[in-house]
Computed example of a mutant assay.
Amino acid sequence: MNFASIRVITDDVDRLVEFYEKVMGITAERPAPVFAELVLPSCTLAIGHSETVSLFGVGSAVAADNRSVILEFRVQDVDAEYKRLKPVVDDWVKEPTTMPWGNRAILFRDPDGNLINLFQPVSEEAIRRFSSRG
């Protein structure tokens, strides 16, 4: 099994796509006005309008109501990303910090309030842990 994507449900696809394009530094693929994919070699971030939820036959998924998932991206230089994203991000949760498990990280919220963690392994153990993950 391969982890293929995570999908964020929103009421404003265009706003969220524009935000993630700036954060991720890539252009989204837009196969439909209500759906977008930001494709990285490791995984895809999909963004779907709340009206698409019914296509899956599920009763509900509430846009902008996530309080349990953090989207995480490994980066080369957390401090450089923090400087680059300062003008883009309105809601900073944690400025650059080295965590007890050996990652240097920043944490912020997207326009819908979803948490995003950009991290960089910095301790010997963390570097070793991520060395085989590509």
Score class of each variant (00 low, 15 high):
residue 62 V to E: 15
residue 59 G to I: 06
residue 36 A to S: 09
residue 44 T to I: 12
residue 63 A to D: 07
residue 66 N to Y: 03
residue 78 V to R: 00
residue 34 V to F: 13
residue 58 V to L: 12
residue 72 E to L: 10
residue 86 K to G: 00
residue 108 F to P: 08
residue 110 D to S: 04
residue 102 G to L: 02
residue 34 V to W: 13
residue 62 V to I: 13
residue 54 S to N: 13
residue 86 K to P: 00
residue 118 L to S: 06
residue 115 L to E: 13
residue 75 V to S: 11
residue 49 H to N: 09
residue 99 M to D: 10
residue 114 N to I: 02
residue 62 V to R: 15
residue 101 W to S: 05
residue 65 D to Q: 13
residue 106 I to R: 03
residue 91 D to I: 06
residue 116 I to K: 07
residue 55 L to I: 10
residue 79 D to V: 01
residue 68 S to T: 14
residue 75 V to W: 10
residue 107 L to Q: 13
residue 105 A to M: 13
residue 109 R to H: 10
residue 40 L to R: 09
residue 89 V to S: 00
residue 46 A to V: 10
residue 89 V to L: 03
residue 96 P to S: 01
residue 115 L to T: 12
residue 40 L to T: 08
residue 118 L to G: 07
residue 34 V to D: 15
residue 67 R to W: 10
residue 80 A to N: 02
residue 57 G to L: 03
residue 57 G to N: 00
residue 76 Q to W: 00
residue 85 L to F: 00
residue 93 V to S: 02
residue 40 L to N: 05
residue 113 G to W: 09
residue 79 D to T: 07
residue 88 V to C: 08
residue 52 T to G: 06
residue 100 P to F: 06
residue 82 Y to L: 01
residue 44 T to S: 14
residue 65 D to S: 15
residue 110 D to P: 04
residue 94 K to V: 12
residue 108 F to M: 09
residue 46 A to F: 03
residue 45 L to N: 09
residue 72 E to A: 15
residue 67 R to K: 11
residue 45 L to D: 07
residue 82 Y to V: 00
residue 65 D to I: 00
residue 59 G to Q: 13
residue 44 T to W: 01
residue 88 V to Q: 06
residue 105 A to S: 14
residue 110 D to Y: 07
residue 46 A to Y: 04
residue 104 R to V: 06
residue 112 D to P: 07
residue 44 T to Q: 10
residue 78 V to S: 03
residue 104 R to F: 02
residue 110 D to E: 06
residue 84 R to G: 01
residue 73 F to L: 12
residue 85 L to N: 01
residue 55 L to P: 00
residue 46 A to M: 14
residue 46 A to Q: 14
residue 84 R to Y: 05
residue 80 A to Q: 03
residue 100 P to Q: 04
residue 40 L to M: 07
residue 63 A to T: 05
residue 116 I to S: 07
residue 117 N to F: 02
residue 53 V to C: 11
residue 76 Q to D: 15
residue 114 N to L: 07
residue 101 W to M: 09
residue 75 V to L: 05
residue 98 T to N: 10
residue 108 F to L: 11
residue 68 S to A: 14
residue 110 D to T: 08
residue 60 S to E: 15
residue 84 R to E: 01
residue 117 N to P: 00
residue 52 T to V: 14
residue 88 V to N: 08
residue 90 D to M: 08
residue 72 E to I: 12
residue 83 K to D: 15
residue 51 E to N: 14
residue 60 S to R: 14
residue 52 T to R: 12
residue 36 A to N: 08
residue 62 V to S: 13
residue 47 I to W: 03
residue 48 G to Y: 02
residue 50 S to L: 06
residue 85 L to Y: 05
residue 47 I to N: 01
residue 41 P to Y: 09
residue 78 V to Y: 04
residue 116 I to C: 05
residue 41 P to R: 08
residue 63 A to I: 06
residue 91 D to K: 12
residue 103 N to Y: 07
residue 73 F to Q: 11
residue 88 V to A: 08
residue 37 E to A: 15
residue 90 D to E: 15
residue 117 N to R: 12
residue 55 L to K: 13
residue 90 D to H: 12
residue 39 V to G: 09
residue 53 V to M: 10
residue 63 A to E: 05
residue 45 L to R: 07
residue 78 V to T: 08
